[in-house]
Amino acid sequence: MRSTQNNKLTQTSPNTPISQKRLKTKPTLILLLILLIGNLFWFVLWLLPSGEQVKGGDEQVAAVDGQTITRQEWLAAMESRYGKETLQNLVNEAVMEKAANQYKIKVTDEEIDLELALLRSAQDSNDTTIQNLSDSELRQKIRAQLILEKVLTKDVVTEDTQSEAYYEENKSLYNIPTTYRTSIIVVESKDDAISVKKELANGSEFSVLARERSLDTSSASLGGDIGYVTATQTSVDPAIFKAVQSIKVNDTTEPFVLSDGRYALAFVEEILEGQSFSYDNVKDRIKRELAMEQLPSSITPEAFWAEFNATWYYGEGK
């Protein structure tokens, strides 16, 4: 439309008075304005939710004694309880990616694999990070942490003799035993355990039965998932590790006795074979760890928000 109008204007006789030229272009400008308003109107209508979408906010997702819980109430509750933390994590990850580009920092898959292996072997029973995050989410979280550490320590010098001595003193940390991704169902008696085993044989899902029947409330809420079990963990009942050693991936153990006299069944989702890391494999990690010890422990990704103009729904800064 504009190119056509420009052609018309250029074709106007140079002898035409300026006032007459303006009169000729005025109707066209009015037409353009009407078209612009019309386009804006339809764009706004397109953005507005349809009647069906609006109605979706009132869709029932649960009911208690006849009292309904709508999708809108559900989503509002999730935002209220988890929204701020989730958004903060997303902003932190984005900020760290910006920092990686700014300071030309690289994080390799091998570095993330190393951190994952160390995390799994040293998992604390009270730390449910592995269970709560998917593999991709966990890798992204580790990546963001590695970027932060590399940014903070990029100008800190650590002597080779220090890192070599550290490796020798902590060599056992880098000899990682075989780990078993395990879920459990804990019951009161052997009869209860046999009953659960029969339900599994009849097609019931392990995670569903764990939520319904397991007496171990912390793992039951996670479908029985207790993370990765190793022979060296002191926070996990030794009977669990002994039981999972005898089965394959996606198999369930026979009922076995725990140290407190209760019975359990265990399911193995994944088996990661043990591995050892040489000094060359972990040298950069050790140097970074020693460098971090020289810095204040309170530095977090939020410290870089201002540098990369990060803002969010909850106001300025963190």
Rank of each mutant, 00 (worst) to 15 (best):
144 A>T: 12
167 Y>A: 02
126 N>S: 11
185 I>D: 09
169 E>Q: 15
131 Q>D: 12
193 A>D: 12
152 L>F: 05
147 I>F: 02
183 S>F: 10
202 N>S: 13
154 K>E: 07
147 I>V: 06
176 I>W: 02
139 R>K: 15
170 N>T: 09
98 K>C: 10
155 D>W: 04
217 T>L: 10
95 V>R: 00
143 R>C: 04
103 Y>M: 01
121 S>I: 06
115 E>H: 10
213 R>Q: 11
181 R>D: 15
205 E>I: 11
215 L>Q: 15
165 A>T: 14
193 A>Y: 03
211 R>S: 13
149 E>G: 00
165 A>C: 05
174 Y>W: 10
154 K>W: 00
144 A>Q: 12
179 T>Y: 09
114 L>N: 01
199 E>P: 09
148 L>S: 05
98 K>A: 12
117 A>S: 07
205 E>L: 08
206 F>Q: 02
157 V>C: 02
178 T>P: 03
136 S>N: 07
174 Y>V: 08
216 D>G: 08
179 T>P: 01
149 E>I: 04
184 I>K: 03
154 K>F: 00
119 L>F: 15
116 L>K: 01
177 P>Q: 13
131 Q>F: 07
161 T>C: 00
117 A>C: 02
119 L>T: 14
217 T>Y: 10
201 A>Y: 01
125 S>M: 05
135 D>Y: 05
183 S>V: 07
178 T>D: 12
170 N>G: 05
162 Q>R: 11
153 T>I: 07
113 D>P: 00
104 K>S: 08
151 V>Y: 07
158 T>N: 09
101 N>Y: 06
166 Y>G: 02
205 E>C: 04
130 I>E: 02
205 E>T: 14
100 A>V: 00
100 A>Q: 07
113 D>I: 05
111 E>H: 08
205 E>G: 03
173 L>R: 13
133 L>G: 00
125 S>E: 01
191 D>L: 09
183 S>K: 12
209 L>D: 03
217 T>M: 11
193 A>R: 01
